[in-house]
Nucleic acid binder design. Structure first.
Lengths: 122, 122
DNA sequence: TGTTCATATGAATGTTTATTCATATGTTCC
DNA sequence: GGAACATATGAATAAACATTCATATGAACA
């Protein structure tokens, strides 16, 4: 296992527990899956988006309502709603000129609640 | 409610549903709480940290092991472990020169699992 | 058809952040 | 005490990202 295409060892410590490393590596999901998982949580990792999600958990709202509730510009809210929609966390319906947003997933509430539980316990 | 100190309305739409806004505002947690919640989820929103958490869910590991498992530098791993420790998601114990890390919270597994469930369903 | 209104979007900007490099800290063994 | 090793950390850099501004799209109404 040496030569031009050998993987570069980024850490050259002597105390490598190779058996554990191999065992854990075998149990890890595919790299791509874990990347997707991180992308998913990243959506919750912004206070504006969390506030939007929390608001929508209470009631369907139009873009304008959310902007007023959070005292932010319509543009900023619209940009974040796009992120939330791409993550399949919210859905929208159009009624004339007005677009109403609501939660698109029953998990959203659970995930937020679980995070809140952690926050409150520490 | 006008004058030099009046709050600036960031959105001047006509179709404001003021009753809904007031009702939702009343049910929202404190701004600071939602900020903390976003900070909490932000920790899960990085693939390196998610991979570290997943690995530690399988077995206690030293910094060097994690670096080799993920093929990253010891420094990069150490920096991320600090973030995870500050978020109270991992704990460490020292054994001579070697520092072993493990999960510090029973919620971590649940939160990751729930995120994974969402990923797999969409 | 033209105007008004609600929302969406592209480009620019400032901030945050993950990684790297160099080096410091802390432990063991001689 | 000094050398060797595992980990921690500060500064620098590059990439990611949230917000703003200007403007486009799309619907209602006259």
């Amino acid at each position: 296992m040496a030569g031009p295409n050998a993987p570069i060892d980024k850490c050259d410590c002597d105390v490598i527990h190779q058996d554990i490393i191999d065992w854990v590596r075998d149990k890890m999901p595919r790299e791509e899956t874990l990347y997707d998982l991180a992308e998913f949580f990243k959506v919750f990792g912004d206070s504006t988006r969390i506030r939007i999600l929390w608001a929508l958990a209470e009631s369907e709202m139009c873009v304008c309502d959310i902007a007023n509730l959070l005292n932010m510009t319509q543009s900023a809210i619209s940009h974040q709603l796009r992120v939330l929609k791409q993550a399949a966390l919210v859905k929208s319906r159009r009624d004339g000129k007005v677009v109403y947003y609501s939660l698109d997933d029953e998990h959203v509430q659970q995930i937020i609640d679980q995070g809140m539980t952690h926050i409150n316990e520490k």
